[in-house]
């Protein structure tokens, strides 16, 4: 069983517009009418849960939810066939994340993420008790996304440590500041969130060389696989034995919606490894899943056949 933890879920609202005027471009009130819109449950772990469910893999989603938008998230997950086990917050609403995509420039989304609800001590205790229980049925836990206000940066470290002690494998997808705290727990897979300023306390991750250098140090400390999205259509992957550059031969102008594509990538890698595939097959499938997701209107794709066909466009080169 795979258990995903999304501490700060969201309702994702996506609007497609022909042209967006913002900031200093406008001197007076200006109405932008969307040509299309979409609403869905979001947050990195939730996107991964939905992807896995669409690939036919049963999984359980955990985290904190609140208010009307919390019910939207939980309902959407159940409709996808994901088992839910969320802690309900005493006050506040699950956040809304807004994405605006201009036609023809969908590969450069405008993202506004809500802060989320602060987690109180009682709610955290309730979550930890449930999490320990879930570890008894889990083979993998996926800890993904930003942390809500008032949650300590070492939260993922604590969860990863408990999982490892229970013999459960761990994948973490989060910002570098949060990941830095997790590394001593030696998670199996780490994927830094490249949407944020990407640097560890001891090294920034700008160039390919910097990513490889940091990755080597991280895998030396016990991590098995580090995946970094270096370009929109390419990743660098560092393991204990190898370093790969994976790329997809696609035009970014084909992209309709990049939101969730990164999560489909990690979901694809975990899906393959969970089913016993080797690392190369997992990486090819993962990148193909990310590309097909980016090309579709939906956040994460549901068509296994399309992913398998897209794998032909993925190249994997050892560095």
């Amino acid at each position: 069983m795979i258990v995903t933890v999304t501490p700060n879920p969201s309702v994702d609202e996506i609007y497609w517009v022909d042209r967006l005027k913002i900031g200093k471009e406008t001197q007076e009130e200006y109405l932008t009418r969307a040509t299309d819109s979409d609403i869905s449950a979001g947050g990195k772990g939730i996107n991964i849960s939905i992807f896995l469910a669409r690939m036919g893999l049963e999984n359980i989603a955990m985290g904190f939810v609140g208010g009307y938008t919390g019910h939207v998230v939980v309902r959407a997950l159940r409709d996808e066939g994901v088992t839910t086990n969320f802690v309900w917050m005493g006050s506040g609403e699950t956040r809304i994340n807004l994405t605006v995509l201009e036609h023809g420039r969908e590969h450069i989304p405008i993202l506004i993420d809500g802060p989320g609800i602060a987690v109180a001590e009682g709610e955290m205790n309730r979550f930890m008790r449930r999490y320990r229980r879930m570890l008894k049925v889990a083979d993998w836990v996926v800890l993904a996304g930003s942390l809500p206000p008032q949650v300590n940066l070492a939260f993922y470290y604590e969860l990863a440590k408990l999982a490892k002690q229970a013999g459960v494998k761990v994948a973490i997808s989060a910002g570098a500041s949060c990941l830095t705290h997790c590394l001593p727990a030696a998670p199996n897979i780490v994927k830094p969130d490249t949407r944020e300023h990407l640097s560890f306390e001891w090294m920034k991750l700008g160039t390919k060389e910097e990513i490889i250098s940091a990755g080597k140090r991280i895998v030396q400390d016990g991590v098995e696989i580090m995946i970094v999205s270096h370009e929109v259509t390419g990743d660098i992957v560092i393991t204990r034995d190898s370093i790969w550059e994976i790329n997809a031969r696609v035009q970014t102008t084909q992209f309709r919606n990049l939101v969730g594509a990164d999560d489909a990538l990690l979901g694809g890698v975990i899906y393959q490894i969970y089913n016993g595939a080797g690392i190369e097959q997992a990486l090819r499938f993962g990148l193909a899943a990310g590309i097909v997701s980016a090309e579709s209107r939906e956040k994460v794709c549901r068509d296994m056949g399309k992913i398998e066909r897209e794998m032909a466009n993925v190249t994997l080169n050892r560095i």
């Binding site: 359980i60 939980v74 159940r78 066939g81 994901v82 088992t83 839910t84 086990n85 969320f86 009682g122």
Partner: peptide
């Protein structure tokens, strides 16, 4: 309904 929301026997009634 795929939901495993549940409680433990020692939590108080108010919770």
């Amino acid at each position: 309904t795929r939901d495993v929301t549940s409680v433990e026997k020692d939590i108080p009634v108010k919770e």
